[in-house]
């Protein structure tokens, strides 16, 4: 069967308070689709980390979540500053977050490694001055 459903969200980069709204909605949609709770938790955490990153590092962007028979795909796309050294950014503890971001409870440099840990595949395409596309997949079968 090839039926799939895609949800699209705009992530507002100007307002830290609203960051994560898309992830909350995705969680609701996945529950309505009857997806396994453990899968929902993995997708939610990975997407939430990515959504927060788009707000604190890239000034917002777009998120697409596609649920097919085989997997759930999360695409996070922004036109922010890009990531110069992806290997470095993937290291636990590496962060360029400001003290202000830290005072809000983020910026430990754990987000990207956590996204990789909670998903079955993760691909980062980034160009400095152009933006970043992150694609993550969680298998359903």
């Amino acid at each position: 069967m090839s039926e799939s459903v895609t949800f699209r969200f705009e992530v507002d980069g100007s307002d830290f308070t609203s960051a994560g709204q898309a992830s909350v909605l995705v969680k609701k949609h996945l529950r309505q689709l009857g997806i396994d709770p453990e899968i929902i938790r993995r997708v939610s955490i990975a997407m939430y980390e990515g959504e927060i990153n788009m707000v604190i590092h890239a000034g917002g962007g777009e998120a697409f979540v596609t649920v097919s028979e085989e997997d759930i795909t999360i695409l996070l796309s922004d036109k922010g500053p890009g990531i110069a050294d992806i290997d470095k950014a993937m290291q636990e503890g590496y962060s360029t977050a400001t003290d202000n971001v830290r005072s809000l409870g983020f910026g430990a440099g754990m987000g990207l490694p956590n996204m990789k840990r909670y998903t079955d595949s993760m691909d980062i395409k980034s160009e400095v001055g152009v933006g970043t596309d992150i694609t993550m997949k969680v298998n359903l079968i």
Binding site: F16, T17, A19, G20, S23, V24, S44, I45, Y48, G105
Partner: peptide, 15 residues
């Protein structure tokens, strides 16, 4: 001891 909306969303994401 942190007070912002992300505390609630973090807890929601983690069930």
């Amino acid at each position: 001891g942190l007070v912002n909306s992300q505390v609630i969303r973090t807890a929601v994401m983690m069930d």
